[in-house]
Amino acid sequence: MRFVGREATDVAHHDLESAAKAEAVRDSFAVGIATAAYGVSFGALAVASGLDVWQACALSLVMFSGGSQFALIGVLAGGGTAAWPAAVAGSTLLGARNGIYGIRTSPIVGRGWLKRIAAAWITIDESTAVALAQPTPAARRVGFWLTGIVVFAGWNLTTLTGALIGDALGDTSRYGLDAAAAAAFVGLLWPRLKRLQARAVAVAAGVVAALLTPVLMPGLPVLVAAGVAVVVGLTNWLGRTDELVAEPRS
């Protein structure tokens, strides 16, 4: 739609804006559907870890953060409900990054408390990454909401599907689902290893976790490994002074 007498630059700007929005829509669906698909493995593993189908679904609905959900059921699988303090501490600490994302996505969402609660609920790696990758404010808004909603709908549907499949399968390790969970953590970690400092922290944390697994309750080795990051982060060992904050995964 072009108006007679409109400046050429305005028209060009308008075209650029709709192109950016269309790009944001494509990104949202690509990332959203790919992420939602692996909810199947979460649902199946959750059931294998001792949750029932509805507990698996409740976790995806309320917690809605893949890394934290896998971390929680991983500890419960190894230590049972008695390991709940380490399980809850681990999933919460891993979920803390969503709070950091919220600080960045807050200006994209704008005012209105109901809108902000809904936005907070769907603030995860994917919605933040797609939003921040867009070139214009309108495209960032589209990218954030659409990715969040597509992942939310897909993740909850596939969790239910996976939980029902897991219930029927019985022994999920025969189907390699335990390896799938490990691979999923590798996938979440990989894009964060661009800097030397991050790589050093990853290796040190992995070694600490392996050494402590035989001697501590399930879940605790991961929490102690997080301490490595606190020490390195505060002292900025191997860091650069002009360092920018790393972007979340895309």
Binding site: G67, F70, A71, G74, G78, G79, G90, L93, L94, A96, R97, I100, D178, A179, A181, A182, F185, V186, L188, L189, R192, L193, Q197, A198, V201, A202, V203, A204, A205, G206, V207, V208, A209, A210, T213, P214, V215, L216, M217, P218, P221, V222, A225, A226, G227, V228, A229, V230, V232, G233, L234, N236, G239, E243, V245, A246
Partner: peptide
């Protein structure tokens, strides 16, 4: 910068530890 850097590195450390535990751990055994 220290707060943002530490928050990012905590995520890295936990994910790396989870990779190791999920790959090698069976209960408390390696």
């Amino acid at each position: 910068p220290a707060a943002a850097r530490t928050a990012d590195l905590v995520t890295v450390a936990m994910l790396a530890a989870l990779v190791v535990v999920q790959t090698l751990g069976t209960g408390q055994a390696i």
